[in-house]
Deep mutational scan, measured.
Amino acid sequence: KVTYHVPNEEFARKLYKKAVDANLNVEIRVENGQFIIHIE
């Protein structure tokens, strides 16, 4: 399980798409202006 803290929405979207394309379980949320992405 990996967690990324991404300040940039564009990068967060790319990361999310890559994980989904790889059939990984992804959860994304915004906290204090940062995008928190959990990948399992």
Rank of each mutant, 00 (worst) to 15 (best):
N25G: 05
A22K: 06
A12S: 01
I39Q: 00
K14R: 12
I39W: 04
E10P: 03
V20G: 02
V6S: 10
R13Y: 11
K1W: 15
R13C: 15
Y4N: 03
K17D: 06
Y4D: 02
N32A: 07
K1S: 13
A12C: 15
V30N: 05
T3D: 05
H5M: 13
K14I: 12
E10T: 06
E9G: 05
K17Q: 12
A22W: 13
I37S: 00
A12E: 02
I28S: 00
E9I: 12
V2G: 07
K17E: 07
V2L: 10
H5Y: 14
Y4H: 04
R13E: 04
D21R: 11
V26W: 04
V20I: 12
Q34A: 10
D21S: 10
Q34R: 10
I39K: 01
N25E: 07
E27W: 14
E40F: 15
K14M: 13
Y16H: 02
I28P: 00
P7G: 13
F35I: 07
Q34P: 01
I36N: 01
V26T: 01
F35R: 01
T3M: 08
A12I: 08
E31A: 08
Y16M: 06
I36A: 03
R29Q: 07
Y16G: 01
I39M: 04
L15A: 03
V2R: 11
A19F: 15
L15R: 02
Y16A: 06
H38Y: 13
R13I: 09
P7D: 15
I36H: 03
N8V: 07
K14E: 11
A19H: 04
N23L: 13
F35V: 05
I36Y: 11
K14W: 15
T3H: 08
R13F: 10
K1R: 12
F11D: 13
E27T: 14
I28M: 12
E9M: 09
K18Q: 12
T3S: 08
N25A: 10
I36R: 03
F35H: 01
E40L: 12
I36K: 03
E9D: 04
A19Q: 02
I28R: 00
K17I: 10
A19T: 03
E9K: 06
Y4R: 04
E40N: 12
E9R: 04
V26G: 01
R13Q: 07
V6K: 04
F11C: 15
V26E: 00
V2D: 04
K17H: 05
V6W: 07
Y4K: 02
T3I: 12
K1I: 11
T3C: 15
V20F: 08
N25W: 14
R13D: 02
K18W: 15
K18E: 09
A22H: 07
I28T: 01
D21W: 11
E9F: 11
G33Q: 03
N8G: 06
Y4E: 02
I36M: 05
E40W: 15
G33D: 03
K18V: 08
I36L: 05
F35S: 00
T3A: 05
V2K: 10
R29F: 11
Y4T: 03
D21Y: 09
F11Q: 13
R29G: 02
N32T: 04
I36Q: 03
I37N: 00
Y16V: 06
E31F: 09
L15F: 06
T3R: 06
E10S: 08
L15D: 01
F11E: 15
N8A: 05
I28E: 00
E10I: 07
N32D: 08
I37D: 00
V30R: 07
G33L: 04
I37L: 08
F35G: 00
E27R: 09
V30C: 11
I36S: 05
N23H: 12
N32I: 09
E10D: 09
H5D: 03
V20Q: 11
N8S: 09
I37M: 03
A19R: 04
N25C: 11
K1L: 09
F35P: 00
N8P: 05
Y16I: 08
V30G: 02
E31P: 02
R29E: 06
A22P: 01
V2E: 05
E31M: 09
K14A: 12
Y4V: 10
E40C: 12
V20D: 02
N8E: 05
A22M: 13
E27D: 06
I37P: 00
N8F: 13
H38Q: 13
Q34K: 09
T3Y: 09
V26D: 00
K1H: 12
E9N: 04
F11I: 14
Q34I: 15
R29H: 10
V26K: 00
N23F: 15
R13N: 06
H38N: 09
E10K: 06
N23A: 07
L24V: 04
G33R: 03
A19W: 11
I39F: 06
K17F: 09
V2A: 06
K1E: 06
N23S: 06
R29S: 08
V20N: 03
V2Q: 08
A12F: 10
N8I: 09
N32P: 03
A12L: 12
H5V: 14
L24Y: 07
H5W: 14
P7Y: 15
K18C: 15
N32R: 06
R29K: 09
V2H: 12
V2F: 12
Q34H: 11
N23V: 14
P7Q: 14
H38A: 12
N32K: 06
A12V: 06
K1A: 10
G33F: 07
E27A: 07
D21E: 13
L24R: 03
F11H: 08
Q34G: 08
I37C: 03
I28K: 00
R13G: 02
A22R: 07
H38V: 15
Y16R: 04
E27N: 06
K18L: 14
E31K: 06
I37G: 00
V6I: 11
I37A: 01
H38S: 15
N32V: 05
F11W: 14
G33P: 00
H38W: 11
L24T: 01
V20Y: 07
V26A: 08
G33N: 05
H38T: 15
E40I: 13
E40M: 14
R13P: 01
T3Q: 06
K18P: 01
R29A: 04
Q34S: 10
E31D: 05
N23I: 15
V30S: 05
K14S: 08
I37H: 00
F11L: 14
V6D: 05
V20K: 12
L15M: 07
H38F: 13
D21C: 12
V30A: 05
L15N: 02
D21G: 07
E40T: 13
I37V: 11
R29P: 00
P7A: 14
K18A: 14
H38P: 00
R29W: 12
I36T: 07
E31N: 05
Y4Q: 03
H5S: 09
H38G: 03
V26N: 00
L24E: 01
T3E: 06
A22Y: 09
E27Q: 10
V30T: 05
L24F: 08
N25D: 07
K14G: 03
R29N: 05
E27P: 00
N25Y: 13
K1M: 09
N25R: 14
F35M: 03
Y16W: 09
T3F: 09
R13K: 09
K1P: 09
E10N: 04
F35T: 02
T3N: 05
N25K: 14
H5G: 04
E40R: 13
E40P: 04
P7C: 15
Y4L: 12
Y4G: 03
A19E: 02
E9Y: 12
V6H: 04
K17P: 01
K1D: 07
G33M: 04
N25I: 13
A22Q: 07
L15H: 02
N23G: 15
Y16D: 00
T3V: 11
A12P: 02
N8T: 08
N25V: 12
H5P: 04
A19M: 13
Y4F: 11
V6P: 06
V2T: 07
D21V: 08
Q34Y: 13
K17W: 10
F35A: 01
I39Y: 03
Y16T: 01
K14F: 12
A19L: 15
R13V: 04
E10F: 08
L15W: 05
F11K: 06
E27S: 14
D21T: 08
F11T: 13
K18T: 08
H38M: 14
V2M: 09
E31Q: 08
K1Y: 13
V30L: 08
Q34F: 14
V2I: 11
A12N: 02
V26P: 03
V20A: 06
K14N: 07
V6M: 09
D21K: 10
V20T: 08
